[in-house]
Design a protein around this nucleic acid. Structure first.
Lengths: 105, 105
DNA sequence: TTGACATGCAACTATTTAGCTGCATAATAA
DNA sequence: TTATTATGCAGCTAAATAGTTGCATGTCAA
């Protein structure tokens, strides 16, 4: 889970996920285009995404095709974010507001 | 949004959010306890969380009370994660599996 | 076979980050 | 007032990170 959060922390890596969401099975060379960065840098980012399980790869001759895997994102959403954005969090926000009201008196 | 992702990338900061979810309005000194780290380090983490809008603070005498703010998390969940964990992503995963099947022939 | 193409591996640099120590400031309590 | 407590600010170090270049390897196509 920590690897997933760390992987998502970089804007370049989030952009890569975005592009894979738009079109699966892209090669490294294809993904480099438009990022304003060298091939090796993008390869590093993709390796981090792969290490976090966010991207799965598949060799096809000399090309390495990259596929988005959304399972880790769904895990984060389910096991972590939901606790914060759910009803309980809203209740706590209300409590905070109540405390602030109290403070302003 | 980038600030939010970066703030969530650190396990100590996620732990801080967890603890604030459990009990709002804690002081810095209170939050230091159990993290195995100096007060100033925790203060830096809290400053980053505050900078990302994930924590709001309120002075009460010499004590600075910390409150969880879930809005940025909800934003991430709504504007970013939903695109990946939704039905479209599932369809793409199926497509990926289909491609892999095809590859194995 | 030869040349072009796709990728990997290794080493280097600069920047950011996480933690620390030391001192200063402000508020509470005796 | 004086001592204690809560926090902030500044500076330092070590480690991690993001980017680079250069070279090696393996595949496809002529």
């Amino acid at each position: 889970m920590d690897a997933t959060f760390k992987a998502l922390a970089d804007p370049t890596r989030r952009a890569l996920l975005d592009r894979l969401l738009g079109k699966q099975g892209q090669t490294l060379t294809e993904l480099v285009d438009g990022l304003g960065m060298r091939r090796q840098s993008v390869a590093k980012h993709l390796a981090i995404l792969e290490g976090a399980g966010l991207v799965s790869c598949q060799w096809h001759g000399r090309e390495k095709l990259h596929y988005l895997n959304t399972v880790p994102i769904a895990e984060i959403s389910r096991r972590w974010l939901d606790r914060f954005s759910g009803q309980r969090a809203a209740a706590i926000l209300n409590l905070r507001d109540a405390l602030q009201e109290n403070e302003n008196e």
